[in-house]
Design a protein around this nucleic acid. Sequence first.
RNA 1: CGGGGCGUAGCGCAGCCCGGUAGCGCAUCUGCUUUGGGAGCAGAGGGUCGCAGGUUCGAAUCCUGCCGCCCCGACCA
Length: 445
Amino acid sequence: MRLSRYFLPILRETPKEAEIVSHRLMLRAGMMRQEAAGIYAFLPLGLRVLKKIEQIVREEQNRSGAIEILMPTMQSADLWRESGRYDAYGKEMLRIKDRHERDMLYGPTNEEMVTDIFRAYVRSYKDLPLNLYHIQWKFRDEVRPRFGLMRGREFLMKDAYSFDVDQASARHSYNKMFVAYLRTFARLGLRSIPMRADTGPIGGDLSHEFIILASTGESEVFCHKDYLDFAVPDANVNFDDVAGIQTIVEKWTSLYAATDEMHDTAVFQNIPVDRQVSARGIEVGHIFYFGTKYSAPMKAVVATPDGKEVPVHSGSYGIGPSRLVAAIIEASHDEAGIIWPEPVAPFRAMVLNLKQGAAETDAASEQIYGALSELGVETLYHDLDDRPGAKFATADLIGVPWQIMVGPRSLAEGKVEVKHRTSGEKELMSVAAAIGRLGGAGTAR
RNA sequence: CGGGGCGUAGCGCAGCCCGGUAGCGCAUCUGCUUUGGGAGCAGAGGGUCGCAGGUUCGAAUCCUGCCGCCCCGACCA
């Protein structure tokens, strides 16, 4: 992509409404624009990141055996009256009347709808387990939206819903999501820690929040330091291995980890002091087993082997891809701007022509840009007539992992400079070497 | 929902107290010079001063009402 043909409205100054770093950087980097309180439009750069996150989330859901569907944003109030939540949900639900005065709502979540889909088609235990998920915009009319995408009113959510014949098999469905979440966040460049969450009236121990540590996190969290070194299950993990999956979950829940509302000071203090982590965290995922809460009132039942009908046992599992855009920035930035983990970077490389209009730099820049594009490397070519300093600042701000500086100084020796955004390391190399470095398969290091 | 703050050009702000018809920096456009960490000079364009009433000869400025946005707290992917 040539910057001269792109739509990247960089802001030099920070809009005053932006308080936290991810919000400031997203606005400055031209990733999004606020349209109303808690409601944002995604601009090209932001959309690229959002789509990458979404795709990683999707791949890991699929790997675990979940099946993608797409439910609408608008729902009929009748479904919610069946579950009793139409009245219970309160003001956070955006209620709308259509032209026929029918009560509609903009979905804040989809338990009712997915249960309706399930009960329409599934009748037998033989069709279970089943896990249906979708990635769709949600609306919750928050009392107080804030912090940009971190707590918006309209947000993208991946929500999965599992259906099992009994609680024992529901536990395995829960565990599969648990492991899928560990993998998902790791692939996004984040270290997530599952923390016991309040299960409310349902009870039991099957609810976890996945928290990433960031100094600007919303809530205070406490955990054992060893979690930071635990190995995340690799791509070959067998999701059908009930015992194996259970072992992973047990390992990842063996040590202390709690958000402030579940915090037990006495237990925490039993951890050796040098292993205690007291920090701030951002909730990026939440998994929950809720049994027959919706299947019972909504009559989502299946026949068991002995011919009886029982309500299915369900759980729901959420990840907020739009919040993750902000969360990743919170966890990965410096004074100059964003530092994208490679898997979610909007572009992999950026070519900076330090003397636009000069024959040598133009030719070398075009050569590199053309070659990388040919190799399928997502490359942004800064071909505007800006001064070098401005181009450096832009590149650092938008956080592209690899910068290739093409200037007359190094080019006189036949070389360009390749800078790694994360480490700050710079290396002089020939044009061909730079292309080889970034055009190589997989990582460039 | 309680408390606080802010709405003036795309962004950041001054002007308001003490009423006289809008200004600064950045950005944008033109020209020239410049080109390895947000360039310089010269010129130009761009504003229903959030909205609606009111007071006044005259309102960005004073009064009333409304709307929007942000922050702190209680609640949440």
